[in-house]
């Protein structure tokens, strides 16, 4: 590996290339490399979140950007973490399902509570991705119409067909603050 390859990332005193990744308002300093615990240039954000940082709430299903299971927020927008290289996410603010709870009290986000109230899941594997997509929508449009909710969730697969109850759960918190 040539010196210039990671020129844009920080070089530590030891000569390791490092990058900082901001996840759920916490800044992680990660070493770029291919040893365990490091970020290989080929690692996806989903991989880093799950395997390097232990944030397994983000689910990987198709791993090809077609199912929405790995949806996280990047600078507030819903993105697919399986189709992003971690090394290209430096300087971005990432929010995962683990970042939705009130950090001090551990209280659930009203959207999470609404999913429970509406039983808006069956097996639950798609749920973190669904919630993150809905979260991005509500941040941009706090009072979406039913059509807008369905459109915002249109990239999120659910095989059990929880979507009817998901739409109700999102509707129930739309128009409310936070």
């Amino acid at each position: 590996m040539t010196g210039e390859i990671f020129a844009s990332n920080v070089e530590s005193a030891a000569g390791d290339k490092q990058m900082s990744l901001m996840v759920n308002a916490h800044s992680y300093l990660l070493t770029v490399g291919n040893r365990p615990g490091e970020v290989d240039p080929a690692h996806t954000l989903a991989f880093t979140l799950r395997e390097t940082l232990g944030l397994t709430g983000t689910k990987v299903s198709c791993d090809k950007g077609a199912c929405g299971g790995c949806t996280v927020l990047m600078d507030g927008k819903a993105v697919l973490s399986c189709m992003l290289l971690t090394i290209e996410c430096g300087g971005k603010e990432i929010t995962t399902i683990e970042g939705l709870m009130e950090p001090k009290t551990g209280a659930l986000d009203p959207l999470q509570q609404s999913f429970i109230d509406h039983s808006a899941f069956q097996c639950g594997f798609c749920t973190p991705g669904m919630i993150m997509s809905a979260k991005a929508l509500l941040a941009e449009n706090p009072s979406p119409s039913e059509e807008e909710i369905k459109e915002a969730l249109s990239g999120n697969f659910c095989r059990c067909i929880s979507q009817y109850q998901v739409v109700e759960a999102v509707k129930a918190v739309s128009g409310k603050k936070r």
Partner: peptide, 21 residues
């Protein structure tokens, strides 16, 4: 009557531990 799923809180917070987790 509608009662919340016992595993609901784990599911919505991403703490439900599927095999790969």
């Amino acid at each position: 009557k509608a009662t919340p799923r016992r595993d609901g809180a784990e599911i919505v917070t991403g703490r439900s531990h599927f095999v790969d987790d």
